[in-house]
Amino acid sequence: MNTWQDSIVELIRRTSAEIPDDVQRAILAALEREKKGTIAASAMKIIEHNIALAKQKSQPICQDTGSVLFYVDCPAGFDQIAFTEAARAAVKAATQKGYLRQNSVDSLTGKNDGTNLGPGAPTLHFHQHKDAGVTVRLMLKGGGCENVGAQYSLPDEGIKADRDLAGCRKAILDAVLQAQGKGCGPGVLGVCIGGDRATGYEFSKTQLLRRLDDRNPVQELDKLEQDILNTANELGIGPMGFGGKTTLLGVKITTANRVPASYFVSISYMCWAYRRQGARFDATGKILDWLY
């Protein structure tokens, strides 16, 4: 499993130090859009410079290297236990190399043993697929933006949201309003309509694995995504909440079935330091190509 371990260390390095192309393009477009000479434009300039510097120095884009979340698609018979061990060893090694900050705290004792290993750290999601190859995606999810995520239970009287798409729209836009710039905006929303509380949040996170420039194949959801994106960018919250034209870089929405009694809208917020990468691997663990 040594090849696996080395490959995963490289996946972690690349995820932590290099923003994916689709996000980079969205950030450049946002910089163009902001009025020259405003504090919003200078914030975007610093963000752009920071992205270039991190890549050049192979250093973390943001010092909060976040929760380490792996999403693994693998064929039947793939040794998930061995993979988990390799991933844990890689996380520890990547921490020693400084690609990850010592960022994981025991919730009971408050202790940080500096390894980034512990219950739920890292988190691995396995999915079996028909393909013979293995695909691993990695997301480093920062704390500041995770803190502004929200889950609404509809109907919600406070925001006058009923159990319909209009109600979902109100809930999602309320989350944008409440978040302001606190999640290090401009950000990206991953949203799930429905599900139980845990599934709702899980699905909202996996929406953040989608490319920013893709379109939702479900017409109603595609419409809602574009509508939320445009409306949020008309609110004037702007980068860092300084005011400005770019509040969000993207919105991705999915659904999960719900029981008749529940109607959750779960929203995960990803900061501009959008760290996700992925690769296809051969059976020995060699990286074949990058996904984003």
Partner: peptide, 13 residues
């Protein structure tokens, strides 16, 4: 004074 959140590399410079 609000600094740019996340801009760890630029600010370190």
């Amino acid at each position: 004074l609000h600094a740019i959140g996340g801009a760890a590399q630029v600010l370190a410079e």
